[in-house]
Amino acid sequence: MSESTAKLNADKHVEYIVNLGRAENTLSYHLTEHLRLNGIYWAITSLSLLGRIDALDRSAVIEYVGNCWNSSNGGFSSHPNHDTHILSTLSGIQILITLDAVEEAKIDTSKVVDYILQLRPSNQGFFTGDEWGESDTRFTYCAISTLSLLGALDRLDQVESGTSIKQKIVSWFTQCINFDGGFGNNIGAETHSGQVFTAVAALAIIDRLDIIHTDNLSWWLSERQVQNGGLNGRPQKQEDVCYSWWVLSALSILHRLHWINKDKLISFILSAQDPDCGGIADRPGDVSDVFHTLFGVAGLSMLGYPEIERVDPVYCMPVKTIERLGLKKSYTLL
């Protein structure tokens, strides 16, 4: 690793993110419409952790997010007039809460809560992404996180056929636990670091981490670190900066973050920075994007890298925001 990439190039990353907003004429801009609100969330959160949330026009962001809200069904779409989806709904709420602008955006949060709740098929312990019924631990996390951010977790106490929704969720997650202690996206699906985060964080929010085999799973997670310091998502797969979020957040919630070699991982993340255009890529030498930029910065934040705001490993939002809401859970950062 050269000297020039050995430090976090925060100014370049801010510049890179701000410039993303000026790229509307590129083909890739049009091809990512279905991820636009997620993209703004990644951008806002990165900037917030870098202490530069003012770099994007706050009122324009709020107005855009407001335009992505569908007042008839209560969900958010990725772009105005697209279909609503649970992924963009969580992103929309995360952006507005980070900007402390839920009221300003004139969002009726009770409608958002109802939108989320109707995405659970009756009697099931999981949520789907939209009315088309794709089930995934990711969507269940999105649902629980959104409800929590909106102060509506008590809605999961509702009893249906003798058991509470929360109990159904816990038993679904229990069925998803694999022989290696991890979680896939569905019952029996291969353990994957990204899905592990969604399960661990969802269970943390509803205070049911007790069903997790903590040491077993934490060992599997620390096994994800390869010789160059990077982390992979599954055994024998290539390392990728985004796992600096998925693996570290889960380990942090499980209070085992110190099982990772911090210095080697910091070096790996920094080596994936683009020294010319800014941003962080999946691995050294690749093209950077805002998704990997956030997860690289968030990883560094959990590892205690200087001059980065602390990120909350449960919600992937600034700690100070989660503390303002009084939602902070138990976890350990380095």
Binding site: G21, E24, H30, A60, N67, P80
Partner: peptide
């Protein structure tokens, strides 16, 4: 055409006609 609405990201320039996806 896509109704961009006010956007945090500058408005789209619709002069670019040969974009088959759009």
């Amino acid at each position: 055409p896509q109704d961009e609405g006010p956007s945090p990201l500058a408005p789209i320039n619709y002069s670019q006609k040969c974009n088959p996806h759009r």
